[in-house]
């Protein structure tokens, strides 16, 4: 019995180790080869670099305008997520607390459209962007993200508000605070758990989204990290040492973010998925 237990434990660990190695493999290969010279890389992709030279990194750091691209990304994600949280918490809360035919209609309009795939609206959306003259505008793009993101967020807020007691808002009304003031001082703090979930899922989505910026942003000064990386890939056709260092640079912010908030992130992901 004891032997069998040991054997099954061993098998599980072998399986987990193989899977773990598979997860890290592309990252490790990219990291290892990003420090090499082109000659070293061509002779052996599996060897450790002879010395830790940051030449490739310096080259690509400048070439992809790293800090500028990073700044654009931060601005884009920050403003989009702020809009989504603000707009959808207001709407989701009020739609839940108002029980009329109109509120039901508005809510179902938000929910029904969730099945529309992005590629179906991509081209007319591009037209809207042209007409509103927000092509190449980071803030304009964040308004687009708000438009695409609010329906899910309204749905999540709506569901969460149902679970918090109405008495607290009544108490606030008796104390004389009502309307927007009551919302920000009483309701919004109560929504914190779901706000965290919505924040995390949207930050990850927008940070890693590629197709929408690819269509909307063509000015290289406004490039996000992914757009700069993508352009670099085209320019450095087969210069893998440069490309790999650029990929590592582009991945670093997310990995740092993950290292700091991994517990929160994993909780938020599970929470968001099970409510969705």
């Amino acid at each position: 019995m004891k032997n069998r237990r040991f054997l099954s434990d061993l098998l599980v660990y072998i399986f987990l180790a193989v899977a773990g190695f598979f997860c890290l493999f592309p990252l490790l290969m990219a990291l290892m080869n990003s420090f090499k010279t082109n000659g070293e890389l061509l002779t052996n992709v599996m060897s450790f670099p002879k010395s830790l030279k940051f030449d490739n990194y310096i080259r690509t750091f400048n070439k992809m305008h790293y800090l500028r691209s990073l700044g654009n990304n931060v601005l884009l994600v920050g403003s989009s997520v702020t809009l989504i949280i603000l707009f959808s918490s207001l709407a989701g809360w009020k739609l839940c607390r108002t029980k009329t035919g109109l509120s039901k209609i508005i809510f179902s309009v938000f929910v029904l459209s969730m099945i529309i795939p992005f590629s179906s609206i991509m081209i007319p959306l591009y037209k809207v962007v042209l007409v509103l003259k927000i092509k190449n505008s980071i803030l304009g793009l964040s308004a687009v993200y708000a438009g695409l993101g609010v329906s899910m967020a309204v749905f999540l807020y709506h569901g969460f508000v149902k679970s918090i007691p109405y008495e607290l808002e009544e108490a606030a009304a008796i104390d004389g605070s009502s309307g927007l003031h009551a919302f920000f001082s009483v309701v919004l703090p109560l929504l914190k758990p779901i706000t965290a979930t919505i924040c995390i899922t949207n930050v990850l989505w927008i940070w890693n989204d590629f197709l929408l910026p690819l269509i909307v942003i063509s000015d290289s000064k406004k490039y996000t990290l992914l757009l700069s990386t993508n352009t670099l890939f085209g320019q450095y056709n087969n210069d893998w040492t440069a490309i790999l260092s650029a990929l590592i640079l582009a991945a670093i912010p997310v990995i740092i973010f993950y290292a700091f908030f991994q517990k929160r992130i994993l909780e938020g992901i599970a929470d968001g998925a099970l409510r969705g």
């Binding site: 707009f87 179906s120 609206i121 438009g147 695409l148 309204v154």
Partner: peptide
């Protein structure tokens, strides 16, 4: 606010 961005960037394009 939610409806406006939603209509402009999702419903209208659809």
């Amino acid at each position: 606010p939610a409806l406006i961005v939603y209509i402009i960037f999702k419903l209208y394009p659809a």
